[in-house]
């Protein structure tokens, strides 16, 4: 429920609202033209039979595209795969990223080196590391099986097995992406005032207590940000399966966005792809709103 307020330019609220919009307006205008307008177009297409090769004839077909989603077995499989990926990647990656951030936030020599090292997979771009890991996951002559061999573990099929392919992609994704969230956590850690730690020291708190009672609360808003953006990013899984498995074997790594991409790109069915994109966006937005309700923000 929104409380009704009267906004008049003379009141304090009125002035604040005006200032608020002044700050927001440039971004809003740009987003409106270059994102919301195209989004509106995509929304409109989702009710049409827009086919790329016939851009002139977009017939309104009502909910037909949306009804098609219900009977689309590939969509269902892609949804299952995407949920599996998201539910595993999100908690693991947040934990790894936070761990790394705490490590490199210490006052250490070589701090910049370590930060840069952990961050480097992010810089290398998902494409490059996907190619590299595909080589490494090769069941016959890949580096990982060579190393497992040293430990006496038999060679694994990895990307060529419907059972292992998605897990292999998850491991790589965490490794590749954690440095990114580490950097954001790190920036968040800088925002926690030193005096809180000093106060905790005086109270005789140990490291764990300080983490629990100073660090975590201080990271609350940024954690919410990371939680939400990492979930969104996980739902948008595309590059890894595209490069590493082409969605296979047997569709076990086909993600939702990959399916949308294929239908729109390769099969040129913009109408249907748009409908799936609409469903996708509404679905993830709902999850995001639930996340925001679950984790309450704090205001400074």
């Amino acid at each position: 429920m929104v409380t009704r307020k009267r906004y008049s330019l003379k009141t304090r609220e009125g002035k604040e609202a005006l200032t608020g919009y002044f700050f927001l307006l440039p971004a809003l205008l740009l987003l409106g033209v270059f994102l919301l307008y195209p989004m509106g177009a995509a929304f409109y297409y989702s009710f049409t039979d827009f086919y790329i090769l016939r851009p002139g004839e977009k017939n309104f077909i009502g909910l037909e595209n949306f009804q098609m989603i219900i009977g689309d077995a590939e969509f269902r499989q892609a949804l299952r795969n995407t949920l599996y990926f998201t539910f595993l990647v999100v908690p693991i990656q947040i934990a790894v990223a936070l761990g790394l951030a705490l490590l490199v936030n210490k006052k250490l020599k070589l701090k910049v080196f370590f930060r840069t090292a952990y961050f480097s997979p992010v810089v290398m771009s998902l494409v490059v590391v996907s190619i590299l890991w595909t080589f490494m996951y090769n069941p016959n002559e890949g580096l990982i099986n060579e190393m497992l061999g040293l430990l006496g573990i038999p060679p694994q099929p990895f990307l060529t097995s419907p059972d292992q392919a998605m897990n292999s992609i998850i491991v790589m994704s965490v490794w590749q992406g954690a440095g990114f969230q580490m950097m954001i956590f790190l920036a968040g850690l800088q925002n926690i005032p030193d005096h809180l730690y000093e106060a905790a020291d005086i109270d005789g708190a140990n490291t764990f207590h300080k983490f629990l009672h100073v660090t975590l609360p201080g990271l609350k808003n940024i954690s919410l940000f990371i939680f939400i953006t990492i979930t969104i990013a996980a739902f948008k899984l595309l590059v890894q399966p595209m490069i590493m498995t082409q969605g296979g074997p047997l569709g076990s790594t086909k993600s939702l966005v990959y399916h949308i991409y294929e239908v729109g790109f390769n099969y040129r069915d913009v109408g249907y792809a748009s409908a799936m994109a609409v469903v996708f966006t509404v679905m993830v937005l709902t999850i995001t709103i639930i996340q925001r309700i679950l984790v309450k923000e704090e205001r400074g």
Binding site: A42, I52, K58, I243, V270
Partner: peptide, 23 residues
């Protein structure tokens, strides 16, 4: 879409073509 082709994903990373069109 083979692993050896960088491009695909560089493209995918920034957003590919598709759903759009024009009125």
């Amino acid at each position: 879409l083979a692993p050896l082709t960088l491009s695909v994903a560089i493209m995918a990373a920034c957003g590919g073509e598709e759903s759009g069109g024009e009125t």
